[in-house]
Write a protein that binds this DNA or RNA. Structure first.
Lengths: 108, 108
DNA sequence: ATACTTACTTACATAAAGTAACTGATGTCC
DNA sequence: GGACATCAGTTACTTTATGTAAGTAAGTAT
């Protein structure tokens, strides 16, 4: 059962961003290119899911993958123009979180 | 393993919006209050998950639940101020989707 | 040859979501 | 008053997604 009257473009965008980790991966990359292991440790995602997400995001034209033949080999992931265009979305989420999200622990 | 150096407020916001259906539910409600069954049919979510999400969103202060004793009983869900404040996020997603998301079928 | 690094993959376990039938409160029809 | 209908869920069961931890492949370095 899948009948919606919502704009299909919007729905696709939402389903992309509603996938776990996707937004965080893009957020990390807004600040510059990242490598597999740095993403893995900075956002705490498993290697398995990270590689799935990166493949999917590459397929969708949001990120690109570059092999840099250093030693040892280094794979650099960075945002495409399409991916970078998501920055305003992330900025708005950040704004909202600053205004409305509370942190429980006392380290404010 | 969950070690991140990302702002905890932002991370909470992301984890909220990254939950499947949540953004679509909020999006529907931006245009006004909705009932359980109307949400169910308009976004194509199962009753089970919808009731989970609504409870969770109410708990987080994003929506409120009003019982209207009509016939038959009607439950109205609407955004709180905190929930409505997410509108700019959804607008940016909409902007992005208009510029960058393609629809495959020929009904453009 | 052995060990070390990065970038993954694979096999298996757990958590989340989908499906469809069912409950409970209220009300209408006959 | 009994049968039926509606809305708002809930429950039991299946499928899909994610987590965990070990393993693989390519390329040095010793």
């Amino acid at each position: 059962m899948k009948q919606s009257n919502i704009c299909p473009r919007f729905e696709k965008a939402i389903s992309l961003l509603s996938q776990r980790w996707t937004a965080l991966i893009i957020y990390q990359m807004v600040s510059g290119p990242h490598r597999f292991c740095s993403l893995q440790s900075s956002i705490g995602i498993s290697g398995k899911v990270l590689s799935e997400r990166l493949k999917d995001l590459e397929l969708k034209g949001i990120i690109k993958r570059d092999v840099i033949p250093e030693t040892p080999v280094m794979i650099e992931y960075s945002l495409t123009e399409k991916g970078y265009a998501l920055k305003p979305v992330l900025n708005e989420i950040e704004n909202w979180s600053q205004s409305w999200v509370e942190v429980k622990s006392a380290e404010e």
